[in-house]
Amino acid sequence: MSEKIALSTWPTPMEPMPRLAAALGLHEDDLWIKRDDLIGLGGGGNKVRKLEWLVGAAVEARADTLVTTGAQQSNHARLTAAAGARLGLDVVLVLPGTSDSAANASGNLVLDSLFGARVFWAGDGHPGGMADVAEDVCRQLSRDGARPYLIPFGGSSPLGARGYVEGGEEIRSQLPDVDHVVVAVGSGGTMAGLTGALGEERVLGVHCGAVADPAATVAALAGPLTPHGIAPDSLRIRTDQVGAGYGVLHEPVLEAMRTTAATEGIVLDPVYSGRAMAGLIAAVRDRDIRRGERTVFLHTGGLPGLFGHAETVHRSVTALHSCDPV
């Protein structure tokens, strides 16, 4: 197996969230947050753990160009661009849309440019369904004399998921008595790695709408990380926070973002971590998470994407509090 390449400093902090816990009706020491948003590379986020392994494989294969796919505001694409910049590798991002999409670039797209990535605009289509386009891009790069390495959507493969086997082991070393770890499920690799480290019963995933069948996706990624495989129906995955679809603001998510920010000063994004927190709040309401149970919320990052999400920005600005001058 390839050796990983260190892209940050570990472990990330584990911090209590007593005010949010109290607001949700939990004991003040029940709720903790694992700060993978504070990973140093490229603005932070969970994808760095996966990229350490995936970029390690690319370097071992003597690649000079990283190619990957994602949505226009993909955190994974942004961090792949940052990893390439750190290691002196070219990066090509295959994103939905046209070159006109760059005219009003914001959020992650701005950082993609700063990190020196090139974008291949793939037209319309779901970001999870562009693997064929990315393979075509790799073939063209090879014809042009480059040595491309294709990193999967979201960095999610059994190899990439090893980053969150390590992340799960960090959590267990920081809070040995953890009962629940709550995490967003996008492309599935983060939950898969956590499940490999902590078992199905302790990991609660919250589906974000990025894949059609989250349980099957996570099980396929987690299976190679465990001695006996993973059955999809053994996984704890909530599907009640997708709303109108991936990337579309869901009202409970905005409320979860506001509550977390107002009680703990912590910012979540509307696509992933905000949905995960909305799922955690719903799990407390449903008594799937109860008082006295030690719960960790994995903050997967995504702050740059918040500023590229027009509806969330608009709703937040229009809700600004006003006061009379003193």
Rank of each mutant, 00 (worst) to 15 (best):
I5K: 09
A6Y: 01
A6M: 07
T9A: 14
T9W: 00
W10G: 00
T12F: 02
T12D: 13
P13T: 00
E15T: 11
P16V: 08
P18F: 10
L24R: 07
E28D: 13
D29T: 13
G40V: 00
G43A: 06
N46A: 07
K47P: 00
L51D: 01
G56R: 02
E60S: 09
R62P: 00
A63E: 10
T68N: 01
G70D: 00
A71P: 11
Q73D: 06
N75T: 06
H76R: 10
H76P: 05
L79D: 02
T80S: 03
T80H: 00
A81N: 03
G84W: 05
G84E: 03
L89D: 02
D90Q: 13
V91E: 03
L93V: 06
G97D: 09
T98H: 10
S99R: 14
A103Y: 08
A105S: 13
G116A: 12
G116Y: 09
R118L: 07
F120H: 15
G123L: 09
G123W: 08
G125F: 06
G128Y: 08
G129Q: 14
A131Y: 04
A131P: 01
D132G: 14
C138Y: 09
C138D: 13
Q140I: 06
D144S: 14
A146F: 11
Y149Q: 01
P152M: 06
S156K: 03
S156R: 02
L159K: 03
L159E: 01
G160I: 08
G160M: 05
G168F: 06
G168K: 07
E169F: 00
H180Q: 07
H180M: 02
V182M: 06
V182L: 03
V183D: 05
S187I: 04
T190P: 02
M191V: 09
M191E: 14
A192L: 01
L194G: 09
L194H: 05
T195Y: 02
G196R: 03
G196V: 04
L198N: 09
E200C: 15
E200F: 00
P214A: 12
A215R: 11
A215K: 04
T217E: 12
A220T: 14
L221T: 11
L221Q: 08
L225K: 09
H228S: 15
A231C: 09
S234R: 13
R236L: 14
Q241P: 00
V242F: 03
A244L: 11
V248A: 13
H250M: 02
E251L: 10
V253D: 11
V253P: 08
E255W: 00
M257Q: 13
M257V: 06
T259K: 14
T260R: 05
A261W: 10
A262S: 15
A262W: 06
T263N: 07
V267D: 05
D269V: 02
Y272M: 04
G279W: 10
I281L: 07
A282I: 07
R285T: 13
D286T: 12
R287S: 13
D288N: 11
G292V: 04
G292F: 11
R294Q: 13
L298V: 15
H299P: 07
T300A: 12
P304C: 12
L306P: 03
E311A: 14
V317H: 12
S322T: 15
C323M: 14
